[in-house]
Simulated scan of single mutants.
Amino acid sequence: MNAPLPRLLPDDAAEDKRLRICFPFSGDSIGGSHISVRGLMEHLDPALYRPIVVTEVPGGMIASFFAGHERMDDPGARGLFVPGEAFTLRKFARTLTGVLPRARFLRRQRIDIVHVNDGRSSANWALAARMAGARLIWHHRGDPNALGLRFLAPALAHRVLAVSSFALPPAGIWSARGRSSVVHSPFDISLEVDRAKARDALVRELGVAPETLLLGYFGAFVPRKRPLLFVDMIARLKAMTGRPVMGLMFGEARVPAMDAALRKRIGDRGVDDQLRLMGYRTPGPFWIAACDQLVVPAVGEPFGRTLVEAMLVGTPIVAARSGGNIEALEGGIGILVEPDDADALARACGNLGDARAMALAAQADARSRFSEAAHCAKVSAIYEALRP
Rank of each mutant, 00 (worst) to 15 (best):
residue 2 N to V: 11
residue 3 A to F: 00
residue 3 A to L: 14
residue 12 D to Q: 12
residue 13 A to G: 01
residue 13 A to F: 10
residue 14 A to L: 03
residue 16 D to I: 03
residue 23 F to S: 00
residue 26 S to T: 13
residue 30 I to C: 11
residue 39 G to S: 08
residue 42 E to Y: 02
residue 43 H to S: 10
residue 44 L to E: 07
residue 46 P to D: 06
residue 49 Y to L: 11
residue 52 I to K: 12
residue 55 T to S: 03
residue 55 T to E: 01
residue 56 E to C: 10
residue 58 P to V: 09
residue 66 F to M: 08
residue 68 G to K: 06
residue 69 H to G: 02
residue 71 R to Q: 09
residue 75 P to H: 01
residue 77 A to Q: 08
residue 79 G to P: 06
residue 80 L to Q: 13
residue 81 F to V: 15
residue 89 L to G: 13
residue 93 A to D: 10
residue 96 L to V: 14
residue 99 V to Y: 06
residue 100 L to V: 14
residue 102 R to V: 11
residue 102 R to P: 01
residue 102 R to S: 05
residue 103 A to M: 14
residue 105 F to P: 04
residue 106 L to C: 07
residue 119 G to Y: 02
residue 121 S to E: 05
residue 125 W to T: 09
residue 126 A to M: 13
residue 127 L to H: 04
residue 129 A to T: 08
residue 133 G to V: 13
residue 135 R to F: 10
residue 138 W to E: 02
residue 140 H to E: 09
residue 142 G to R: 00
residue 143 D to K: 12
residue 145 N to D: 12
residue 148 G to A: 13
residue 152 L to P: 02
residue 157 A to T: 02
residue 158 H to R: 05
residue 162 A to E: 03
residue 166 F to T: 15
residue 167 A to E: 01
residue 168 L to F: 07
residue 169 P to K: 05
residue 170 P to Q: 03
residue 170 P to E: 06
residue 171 A to E: 15
residue 171 A to F: 11
residue 172 G to E: 05
residue 173 I to E: 12
residue 177 R to F: 13
residue 180 S to H: 11
residue 181 S to V: 11
residue 196 A to K: 12
residue 199 R to Q: 04
residue 199 R to C: 06
residue 202 L to H: 07
residue 207 G to C: 03
residue 210 P to S: 08
residue 213 L to K: 10
residue 215 L to N: 06
residue 230 F to Q: 04
residue 230 F to V: 10
residue 237 L to S: 07
residue 238 K to Q: 12
residue 241 T to R: 15
residue 254 R to K: 11
residue 259 D to H: 13
residue 264 K to C: 07
residue 266 I to P: 08
residue 268 D to T: 15
residue 270 G to W: 01
residue 274 Q to F: 09
residue 275 L to G: 10
residue 278 M to F: 03
residue 282 T to N: 14
residue 290 A to I: 14
residue 293 Q to F: 02
residue 298 A to N: 09
residue 298 A to L: 11
residue 298 A to D: 04
residue 299 V to N: 05
residue 299 V to Y: 00
residue 307 L to Y: 00
residue 307 L to V: 13
residue 308 V to T: 02
residue 308 V to S: 04
residue 308 V to M: 09
residue 310 A to N: 12
residue 310 A to C: 09
residue 311 M to G: 05
residue 314 G to C: 07
residue 314 G to Y: 08
residue 315 T to Y: 07
residue 315 T to I: 06
residue 317 I to R: 02
residue 318 V to G: 06
residue 321 R to C: 12
residue 326 I to Q: 08
residue 327 E to Q: 07
residue 333 I to Y: 01
residue 334 G to V: 12
residue 334 G to Y: 04
residue 337 V to F: 09
residue 342 A to I: 07
residue 343 D to F: 01
residue 346 A to W: 01
residue 346 A to M: 08
residue 356 R to M: 10
residue 358 M to D: 00
residue 360 L to S: 12
residue 364 A to S: 08
residue 365 D to L: 06
residue 370 F to I: 01
residue 376 C to K: 00
residue 377 A to N: 01
residue 379 V to Q: 02
residue 380 S to L: 01
residue 385 A to P: 07
